[in-house]
Nucleic acid binder design. Structure first.
Length: 270
DNA sequence: AAACATTCCTGCACGC
DNA sequence: TGCGTGCAGGAATGTT
């Protein structure tokens, strides 16, 4: 459930309140042996009695920092971490349970199992090859323009490429390009310096707004306490195929691009 | 019942 | 030629 950057960031923040630095694992229960990849064999042994030093987010990964190896969690398409209330019975697809010495109990639920839980810090294979964070100074117009140069892939597909920039998925890619006034199918090589600057500006703006709204809940995504995000109420184009553009009134178009449904206004976006 | 918020892998085409 | 890179397509899976 928390697929894109704002959702993972919101999960991280909601979890931080409940997991102060120094909290220790006291319970680790595996209800199956794998998600997208196998759980580490020694997960229980290595976690129990160790401390959570803090939580971090890199791209769409949630990181439990420890003195020992860090623990990574990726939520795939349908993963959630939720707090288990006292006496709460487990649900279908509660694959992993963590208990902590402050009484917090967490369940990782993931029907489709595209998520993963594995060891790994910033230098791990999971994180090593990733591009810059979109909210960092490294993601700037000059960088984006250079990355777009000579590439014939659609700008939307490139924006969703984690080697180029992380954290942008199918929802926010459409939203960003609408605000930037750029058609999603435009080849990267055709992006002008002015457009690159607009894309960078609106990427940062939309992601920040979405984080403030605690992400977008389409169906599964929830924060640790079960709350929904609110940013879905602010979508300008995503999931609005056939509806009127809020800016110009034209019908929002929808087409599959790079195997993902894509939404845009053919009048506002060039 | 086709679609789905993600990522990784394969295979082909192109260019040096 | 051979190699590296970019890009398209497919797969993993359960739910609605």
């Amino acid at each position: 459930m928390p697929p894109e950057l704002p959702e993972v960031e919101s999960v991280k923040r909601s979890l931080e309140e409940k997991l102060p630095s120094g909290t220790r694992w006291v319970e680790v229960i595996l209800n199956r042996k794998d998600l997208r990849v196998p759980f580490p064999k020694d997960l229980r042994k290595k976690l129990v009695n160790s401390e959570v030093l803090g939580l971090e987010r890199r791209a769409k990964y949630l990181i439990f920092k420890r003195k020992e190896k860090d623990l990574l969690s990726h939520l795939g398409m349908s993963g959630t971490w939720r707090e288990l209330k006292a006496g709460e019975t487990l649900k279908a697809h509660d694959h992993l349970i963590f208990g902590f010495d402050n009484g917090l109990r967490l369940a990782y639920n993931d029907p489709r199992r595209f998520g993963l839980v594995d060891w790994g810090g910033v230098d791990s294979p999971w994180l090593r090859e990733l591009g810059p964070e979109p909210l960092s100074a490294a993601f700037n117009p000059a960088y984006l323009l250079q990355q777009m140069k000579g590439r014939k892939a659609a700008v939307k597909v490139l924006l969703m490429n984690a080697h180029l920039v992380v954290g942008i998925g199918n929802i926010y890619a459409s939203e960003i390009l609408f605000l930037a006034g750029v058609k999603p199918a435009r080849p990267g090589s055709k992006i002008t310096p002015t457009e690159a600057a607009l894309i960078v500006k609106h990427t940062k703006a939309v992601l920040k707004k979405a984080i403030k709204a605690k992400g977008s809940t389409l169906k599964d995504y929830r924060m640790v306490n079960g709350d929904s995000g609110k940013f879905q109420n602010s979508f300008k184009v995503y999931s609005r195929g056939g509806e009127k553009c809020f800016s110009c009134g034209a019908a929002i178009r929808s087409e599959v691009l790079g195997q993902r449904s894509t939404y845009w206004c053919s009048r506002c976006q060039k």
